[in-house]
Amino acid sequence: MSGFTFSDEQEKEITRIVAKYPFKKSAMLPLLTLVQRAEREVSPAAMVAISKKLDCSPAYVQSVMSFYTMYHAEKVGKYMILFCINISCQLNGCDKLLEYTAGKLGITVGETTPDGKFTLHREECLAACTEAPMMRVNDIYYGALTEQRIDDVLNSLD
């Protein structure tokens, strides 16, 4: 298995994270998040690296990782679009807008564009129901979506 090494900066961040907890296993999610955000995936090699930091087996890391929807075994796009389809957004027409977004990107829901720029996922409630319909692109919430607003958001991303 090809090696995975943390950068010096990541090593410092890991030290800071682990110090927050009396037991270092608690740093599991933060470390997975650190890797996912930097690599856009959590590879088997990264799981091994995390397991060494936390004194547990790589299989254990994988069992935790596979429980949570925000970690991905396959690389996701530079922009991760989470499109809320839960009740408040459904009542405000999200289904058509999701279809529109997929059509605009030329992919089906769950896929990544061939250039690796966008991944589109159907997402459960993101806690912005009063701004429905809404989506989250990387860390940013966009509410009151219309076809025009979706165009504007996607066009604004490099």
């Binding site: 927050k20 037991f23 296993k25 608690s26 740093a27 599991m28 999610l29 933060p30 997975l32 998040t33 936390l54 935790v64 429980f67 949570y68 929807t69 925000m70 970690y71 459960e124 409630c125």
Partner: peptide, 21 residues
């Protein structure tokens, strides 16, 4: 402490398990 996408972690004992890694 950030979760990672799981509604069930709003249930207090699941939250604690998640916080324990």
């Amino acid at each position: 402490h950030l979760g990672a996408g799981a509604y069930i972690c709003g249930e207090e004992s699941a939250l604690l398990n998640s916080l324990e890694g």
